[in-house]
Each structure stands twice: as structure tokens, then as C-alpha cells.
């Protein structure tokens, strides 16, 4: 996983709420067994519409997606995160996210930032006025800045630290193997195992 400290890029405004993971990437694209190449399925139902934001030339280089409330609800498919990353997004900003999507993003190194509805609205207006507006996301300082504005955001220390260090969660947990071994010894014997019983 790449380290994430700061990112400077342009953004695309997605004025839609409740963009569930079925919209981000429909199920038909989930049959692959790799982690790459999902960009072709990103928002596939909307990609035929020339008015759709991602199809507009002026937003083609965007690396930051600014969406409406409840982005990434629904299915747990991590393919939604991969599709956004494969397409080139580094940061998603929205007033609220689906829980599983947000967790998946953190694991895969895609930064999700929750801003208030008003801050998101202000960002939309600013981007719509100037599509090449440079936006700076500073994870260290926990700020999103553009033009003369700078907005703070909240992220838990642990996720922030992991993203900034680019750390693999599994490697971190494997350092706790002794604790896991000890815990397993206390597991009640009546709890089931999957190996066929009789």
C-alpha cells in the first residue's frame, strides 16, 4: 500500500446522494479474479450519458471525487474501492459514507473524508466555477484546502497513521500472534468447527 500524506489534484462534483456500491460497480463486473482493470465498470450505468460528470472533458483528470450524502452504501464489494482507485481517484469526499465501504477504502489506501453538507456544497460550487481548481488534501494536518478556503476533517488516529505509513494491516496483526494463540486456548469447546462433525 502506498503512503498517503498529502495529495494535490482536481476534483469532479457528483451531485447525487445514496450512490450505492451497485452503482459504483454493478455485479456483472465482479466476476474477475484480479484486483485491477475495474475502471471500465465504474459507474457503468451512467457512463453512456454524455452529461454525466465523469464523461465531461473538463473533469477527465480529476483525482478527487466529491459526492452527496450516503456514498458507498449497500453491498460490501471491495471492487467498488478498486474501481475508483483503478480509475485514478485518490480521495472521496462526502457528507456521509456507507460503513463497509469506508472500512474497505481505509484498508485499500483510498482516503474517504467526511465533510458537512455545507462544506460539500461549497466545494461543489467552487469546482463547478473552476474545473481545474487545485485542491490540497493534507492528511497530516487533516485539512482540505482550495483557493482561500481550508476545511478541517476528522479521522481516527489509527487509520490516519496506517494510511500515512502505508502499513499492511495483516502484517501488523501477525505481530500479535502470541495473544491470538493465548485467546484461542480459552475458546469454549462447545463452539462449532466446520470440519464435518461425524
Amino acid at each position: 500500500m502506498d503512503k498517503f500524506v498529502t495529495h494535490v489534484g482536481t476534483a469532479v462534483p457528483l451531485r447525487r446522494s445514496n450512490v450505492d456500491t451497485d452503482q459504483i460497480i454493478p455485479a456483472v463486473y465482479l466476476k474477475r479474479v484480479t484486483r485491477s482493470g475495474f475502471e471500465d465498470g465504474l459507474f457503468s450505468a451512467w457512463r453512456n450519458d454524455p452529461a454525466f460528470e465523469l464523461n465531461q472533458e473538463k473533469y477527465k483528470a480529476a483525482t478527487i471525487l466529491v459526492a452527496g450524502i450516503d456514498f458507498g452504501t449497500g453491498s460490501s464489494r471491495e471492487h467498488a474501492v478498486w474501481a475508483l482507485q483503478n480509475y485514478g481517484f485518490k480521495v472521496i469526499i462526502a457528507p456521509r459514507f456507507g460503513d463497509i465501504f469506508r472500512g474497505n477504502s481505509g484498508k485499500a489506501g483510498l482516503l474517504t473524508i467526511q465533510l458537512s453538507q455545507n462544506d460539500v456544497e461549497a466545494l461543489w460550487v467552487a469546482i463547478e466555477a473552476k474545473s481545474d481548481l487545485a485542491i490540497t488534501v493534507d492528511l497530516e494536518a487533516r485539512t482540505v484546502s482550495y483557493g482561500k478556503s481550508s476545511v478541517g476533517f476528522v479521522i481516527d488516529d489509527y487509520t490516519r497513521w496506517r494510511l500515512m505509513e502505508g502499513l499492511d494491516d495483516i502484517g501488523l496483526t501477525l505481530k500479535q500472534t502470541d495473544s491470538i494463540d493465548a485467546f484461542e486456548k480459552t475458546r469454549p469447546t462447545f463452539k462449532p468447527q466446520t470440519i464435518p462433525a461425524k
Binding site: S76, R77, E78, H79, V81, I100, G103, N104, K107, A108, D156, D169, I170, L172, T173, L174, Q176, T177, I180, E184
Partner: peptide
């Protein structure tokens, strides 16, 4: 609860998950 693929891998490897 449901998890994404990174967490599936995490549980396969460690039988645990770091959770808030």
C-alpha cells in the same frame, strides 16, 4: 457482519479483525 475482501484476507490469515 459483512466485510470487504481485504478483511476476508485478514481473517483467513489471522482469524481476527481490528475493529472499532
Amino acid at each position: 457482519f459483512g466485510v470487504g475482501t481485504s478483511e476476508v484476507e485478514h481473517v483467513l490469515a489471522t482469524q481476527t479483525l481490528p475493529l472499532i
